[in-house]
C-alpha cells in the first residue's frame, strides 16, 4: 500500500492519497497520470494490468488501486 501511495505522491505531491476516494470523479488524476500509474505499478509489482481493469472504479482511491494489484498478483 505504501508503494502505491508513493507512486501517486510522485505525481501529485499536493494530494492526500490516504483519504481521497474521488481521484477520478474530481479529475485529480488525468489520463497521463493513469498511464504513469499503470506503468509504475506494472514494474513495481511485476503484474500485467489488462485493459478491462482500466475502469474508473479501480482508480478512484489508493485503496482501490492496491486491491486491484493484489487481485492481479494472485
Amino acid at each position: 500500500m505504501e508503494r502505491v501511495i508513493e507512486i501517486l505522491e510522485d505525481l501529485h505531491p499536493e494530494v492526500d492519497f490516504e483519504t481521497c476516494t474521488t481521484l477520478i470523479d474530481d479529475e485529480i488524476l488525468d489520463s497521463f497520470d493513469i498511464v504513469t500509474v499503470i506503468s509504475e505499478l506494472s514494474d513495481e509489482f511485476d503484474i500485467t494490468i489488462p485493459p478491462q481493469e482500466i475502469i474508473p472504479e479501480n482508480f478512484n482511491s489508493a485503496k482501490a488501486l492496491y486491491a486491484m494489484v493484489k487481485r492481479l498478483e494472485d
Binding site: I34, P50, P51, Q52
Partner: peptide, 16 residues
Amino acid sequence: PSALKIVSVLNTFLAV
C-alpha cells in the same frame, strides 16, 4: 501523440 499512446500502451486493442 500522448493521446494515441494511451490507447496503445494500455493494450486496449486486445479488448476493442
